[in-house]
């Protein structure tokens, strides 16, 4: 496996498609495993990606998740065509959620998604405005010199 090679790719996410929730996260996990990325980084990337997928599925009609991996970092960008977030600070608060009741009954929409994404990335940026969709950028740095 050539570890110096940069890899990137994208997944199309469809709003309301709960059946395939976690698919992008699963695929990215496999890609990172093949590349020999250390498990602890893979775990963080998997959680961040899964939560990002869920937000697109729960709140928007569609979105695109892009990943970019090199020796330095895993970069994940999720861009959606949703309604946008009115108050980002409020949305970032653990426990705050605008999810409908039926989504909460599924055990989603507990107000943990964005905080989980932030906790599991080294850089977390969210850009959103009502009517303009939301873009989340996350970077997980891969420390060099550690055992994988």
């Amino acid at each position: 496996m050539d570890h110096t090679r940069k890899i990137d790719g994208r997944f199309n996410l469809v709003g309301g498609d709960f059946t395939n929730a976690g698919e992008a996260s699963t695929q990215l996990k496999k890609i990172l495993q093949l590349r020999g990325v250390k498990d602890s980084y893979i775990r963080r990337a998997s959680i961040a990606t899964f939560e990002a997928e869920m937000n697109v599925i729960i709140y928007t009609p569609a979105g695109i998740l892009r990943y970019d991996v090199d020796d330095e970092s895993i970069k994940i960008t999720v861009e959606d065509m949703g309604p946008g977030i009115e108050d980002i600070d409020l949305a970032m608060q653990e426990g705050y959620s605008t999810a409908p009741e039926w989504v909460r009954e599924m055990g989603w929409g507990a107000g943990m998604g964005l905080p989980n994404m932030k906790k599991n990335s080294d850089v977390f940026r969210i850009d959103s405005a009502p009517g303009e969709g939301t873009t989340v950028k996350m970077i997980i740095y891969l420390n060099k010199g550690e055992q994988s």
């Binding site: 055990g107 507990a110 989980n116």
Partner: peptide, 24 residues
């Protein structure tokens, strides 16, 4: 029964007790 909680806090390889029955 909160899936984000499981993702964030359950240990790797744990056994999971829940009342959720859906595909996720």
């Amino acid at each position: 029964d909160l899936l984000s909680d499981v993702m964030a806090n359950a240990g790797e390889g744990s056994l999971w007790i829940t009342l959720q029955t859906h595909i996720n």
